[in-house]
């Protein structure tokens, strides 16, 4: 039994280590991936605050965008991390993993933990940069709680990415996923607009979107405001993470090389 646990942990750690090594090697890519949300924050923030007013007549506060953009970065890099299995298959490395005497489920889990670590690092970098740009967070404990939220939502999206990747047989499919899954998820999450006064059809879509709860929870912990009660957000995020881990692990187990 102990041996089995050791092997499982070693498998998870090995896959995590690989993601870390690859992450470290692609520093330029990380800077690139941070650029988009920062442009959003600076330009969209400036544009919004000079053009729009929040309900109640106050001018738009750019800090409103920060949690949404952190959520966006976590979503992008987590989905990316999950879907990168397609590359592993394309470039053969997947065979090396699948022929090793280890459980596929723990391989998938290790990949997920590795991917989520890189996502959280990127989310935290955005959080720090936004704070250097003058956005104020509610409290230090709130910041740590926000990191935990990034972790939980990251696990969910990486599981989703792995599940999708296990069902796609080419890297052309990757583009499809990115356009048809991630963009709608971001736009329908309340990352850019408050979700309280939306038309009914949009409300349904927004509330069916797991990222909504991630963004809402981040906004609660970082800025102290949210429309969805925080306990509900947390429960839904945890349920989503568990369901996706299970689904991703299961589909990955059935994946043919």
């Amino acid at each position: 039994m102990k041996k089995k646990v050791d092997r499982a942990l070693q498998t998870i750690y090995t896959m995590w280590l690989r993601e870390m090594l690859r992450f470290w090697r692609s520093k330029s890519r990380i800077i690139g991936s941070l650029a988009t949300p920062l442009f959003f924050l600076v330009f969209l923030g400036a544009g919004f605050s000079s053009s729009f007013q929040v309900a109640g007549g106050r001018p738009f506060d750019p800090s409103y965008l920060a949690p949404g953009l952190i959520g966006m970065v976590v979503l992008f890099s987590s989905m990316m991390g999950g879907v990168s299995i397609i590359w592993d298959r394309e470039f053969g490395f997947l065979k090396e993993i699948l022929i090793a005497p280890v459980s596929r489920f723990f391989v998938a889990l290790g990949k997920a933990v590795g991917g989520v670590t890189t996502s959280v690092i990127q989310g935290v970098l955005i959080m720090i940069i936004a704070s250097l740009m003058g956005i104020e967070y509610k409290s230090l404990s709130g910041v740590f709680a926000a990191i935990a939220i990034m972790f939980i939502s990251g696990i969910g999206f990486i599981g989703l990415g792995i599940a999708v990747a296990s069902r796609i047989d080419s890297h052309e499919g990757f583009q499809m996923v990115m356009s048809f899954l991630t963009m709608p998820l971001v736009l329908l999450s309340g990352a850019f607009f408050p979700i309280s006064k939306l038309p009914a059809w949009l409300t349904v879509l927004v509330y069916a979107n797991p990222l909504t709860y991630g963004v809402e929870a981040l906004r609660y912990f970082l800025l102290g405001e949210s429309i969805i009660p925080i306990s509900r957000s947390i429960i839904i995020l945890i349920a989503f993470a568990l369901a996706m881990t299970f689904l991703g692990g299961k589909l990955f187990g059935k994946m043919k090389v």
Partner: peptide
């Protein structure tokens, strides 16, 4: 096992 095509991680 040494497969026909490469199965190395070429970023490492």
């Amino acid at each position: 096992m040494v497969f026909q095509g490469t199965t190395l991680d070429d970023r490492l």
